[in-house]
C-alpha cells in the first residue's frame, strides 16, 4: 500500500476550477515528480495535501487514513513535511535556530518552559549532524537573511528534513538556481531523501529525470499521464500539451 493517495481531488476558487479530479498514489520511498505548465494547479495541489486549505471535494489519504480534516500542524506531526517554492524560513534567526525549530517539534519540545534547547548537547549535536548533511555546518550561527540564495534553499531542505518525515513535498527545490547550483542541489536531494517518499514539483527536466521514479503530468487541473520517466518522455499527449504551451 502506498503512503499517500489522492483521489477525486477537486478545488475551485470562487468558480474557477483549478483542480478537476486529480488522482494518484505514492508508494513507500517512491519519488514522484509532478510536472506541468504554470497555472496547472501544482502548488494548489501541494497546499491541499499539506493542509493549507481544504479541497472542494475528494480525499487525501495519508498512511491509510483520510486526513482531510487535519490542520497543517497535525499532518506535520504524522510525518508529512513540505518545503516551499519561495524560501520560507525564520529570516532573523540563525541557521542553527532554524533547524532546531524542526528538531524540537519532532521531539515534542515545542512549548516547554523549563527545558533550554541550546544547553541540551544531544539536541544541538543532532542539529549539527543535519546541517552537515545539507552542507551548512560552517554557517550555523549566521542569520538566515545573510545567507546566499543557494544556501537558503539548502537550509529550506534541512529544516524540512529535521522533522524526519516519511513523506516530503518539495515545491520547486531548484527554482532560481544556476546550472551548477542545480546540479549540486539535485545530488544533495538524492542523497538526503534516499529512504523517504517524495513528491516533487519541478520545471527543470534534468532534475526531474535524475530524481523521479515516476512522473505525473498535471495539465489544467487533471493528471494527463502518469508513468515511468521513459514512458512520459515518449507520450504523445504530453508532447502535445507541452509543445502547445511553448508555442503560445
Amino acid at each position: 500500500m502506498g503512503i499517500l493517495r489522492v483521489s477525486e481531488l477537486k478545488k475551485d476558487f470562487s468558480g474557477l476550477e483549478v483542480l478537476v479530479g486529480v488522482e494518484f498514489e505514492v508508494g513507500q520511498r517512491e519519488k514522484l515528480a509532478i510536472i506541468g505548465p504554470n497555472g496547472a494547479g501544482k502548488t494548489t495541489l501541494f497546499n491541499i495535501i499539506s493542509g493549507k486549505f481544504p479541497p472542494t471535494s475528494g480525499e487525501v489519504i495519508f498512511k491509510g487514513e483520510n486526513i482531510n480534516a487535519l490542520p497543517p500542524h497535525a499532518r506535520a506531526r504524522q510525518g508529512m513535511a513540505r518545503s516551499f517554492q519561495i524560501t520560507n524560513l525564520f529570516q532573523k534567526l540563525s541557521v542553527l535556530d532554524n533547524v532546531l525549530a524542526g528538531v524540537r517539534s519532532r521531539r515534542g519540545m515545542r512549548h516547554g518552559m523549563f527545558h533550554e534547547p541550546l544547553r541540551d548537547h544531544q539536541l544541538v549535536a543532532e542539529c549539527e549532524t543535519l546541517l552537515e548533511r545539507v552542507g551548512l555546518l560552517d554557517l550555523r550561527d549566521t542569520p538566515v537573511q545573510e545567507l546566499a540564495y543557494g544556501q537558503q534553499r539548502a537550509l529550506e531542505l534541512g529544516v524540512t528534513l529535521a522533522l524526519e518525515p516519511e513523506l516530503i513535498l518539495l515545491d520547486e527545490p531548484t527554482a532560481g538556481m544556476s546550472r551548477q547550483e542545480t546540479e549540486e542541489a539535485t545530488s544533495m536531494i538524492k542523497r538526503v531523501t534516499e529512504s523517504i517518499a517524495c513528491v516533487i514539483i519541478e520545471h527543470d527536466m534534468n532534475v526531474v529525470f535524475s530524481l523521479a521514479d515516476r512522473i505525473a503530468v498535471l495539465h489544467y487541473g487533471v493528471i494527463l499521464a502518469c508513468g515511468q520517466p521513459e514512458e512520459i518522455r515518449c507520450d504523445q499527449r504530453v508532447k502535445d500539451a507541452y509543445l502547445g504551451e511553448e508555442e503560445s
Binding site: 499539506s50 490542520p71 497543517p72 500542524h73 497535525a74 506535520a76 506531526r77 513535511a81 513540505r82 516551499f84 520560507n88 524560513l89 525564520f90 529570516q91 532573523k92 534567526l93 535556530d97 532546531l100 525549530a101 524542526g102 524540537r104 517539534s105 519532532r106 519540545m109 515545542r110 512549548h111 516547554g112 518552559m113 523549563f114 527545558h115 533550554e116 534547547p117 541550546l118 544547553r119 529544516v159 529535521a162 522533522l163
Partner: peptide, 27 residues
Amino acid sequence: RTAMGHSVLLLRENEERMRFLGYNTNV
C-alpha cells in the same frame, strides 16, 4: 532561552512555516 521562548521567536518570524513544522501556533 527555553523551548517556549524559542517558539515565541518563531511566531514573530514566520507563523505559517511554524505550522507546517508541526506547531499548533494557537497554543
